[in-house]
Design a protein around this nucleic acid. Structure first.
Length: 223
DNA sequence: CCCTGATTCGC
DNA sequence: GCGAATCAGG
């Protein structure tokens, strides 16, 4: 296979849209993942978060300053790449938090292309044009299970589970106050609306993901 | 092991 | 220009 105009276009589109090299490769067919990456680089497309090169390391404030340990290793690393902007330090809440559409890790979605949750399990693709003015306010609200008594209050035990109540685990199994959410479940789902929002992400199985709206015609003029 | 992207280098 | 081989982190 050769890099025809169309195939290059497709590569560009998918690459900038965030597809992985593998996906692009077997979408195009006839090329390997490496071929795609190689081509992408030759095209000048890059600046994509690499699992290997997440970004330049920042100087961390060492109090008493131990030996900085100057790396005397491979000295040749041009790395003209600008440091990728550190993604907002999303706090990883251990407890199921608000049902905000959590983005898939390792894949900082294209800022021009976001997924907006319209309900548990349901997401709507949002193109550059449809950008909503008001960004989710990201309220510091935190949904805490109303636990009257910290301990043996009205915990939902394993025995009380049925298809109508939320089975979202609270705490850790084995711990004294481990229990389940117990709120009315979202019909058809094992969890309540809140936890459905946490449990179901926009991310589709890799194979089924498609750069859906087959690029209008002229392709996106993004960037 | 699987995955990822980056880089190298012979063709 | 191409892409397999290789590297290196997750």
């Amino acid at each position: 296979m050769s890099w025809t105009e169309e195939r290059i276009e497709r590569l560009k589109a998918m690459w900038t849209e965030g597809s992985t090299a593998s996906q692009i490769a077997d979408e195009l067919g006839g090329v390997s993942r490496n071929a795609v990456i190689g081509k992408a680089h030759r095209l000048g497309l890059e600046a994509r978060p690499s699992p290997v090169k997440p970004g330049e390391e920042k100087e961390k404030p060492v109090p008493a300053a131990a030996a900085p340990a100057p790396k005397a290793e491979k000295v040749e690393r041009p790395a003209p790449r600008a440091a990728a902007p550190a993604p907002a330090p999303e706090q990883a809440a251990p407890a199921p938090a608000a049902a905000a559409p959590t983005r898939s890790p390792q894949r900082p979605a294209n800022p021009d292309l976001q997924y907006r949750s319209i309900g548990p399990g349901g997401f709507v693709r949002q193109g550059p044009g449809d950008q909503q003015a008001p960004i989710p306010p990201a309220p510091p609200r935190r949904l805490v299970p109303a636990k009257p008594s910290p301990e043996v209050a009205d915990k939902t035990s394993l025995l009380e589970l049925n298809d109508r109540i939320c089975k979202w685990p609270m705490g850790h199994p084995g711990e004294p106050d481990f229990h389940f959410c117990g709120a009315p479940s979202n019909p058809g789902f094992p969890y309540c609306v809140q936890h459905c929002g946490v449990a179901y992400q926009a991310q589709l199985p890799r194979r089924d993901r498609r750069p859906p709206p087959p690029l209008p015609f002229g392709g996106p003029r993004v960037r």
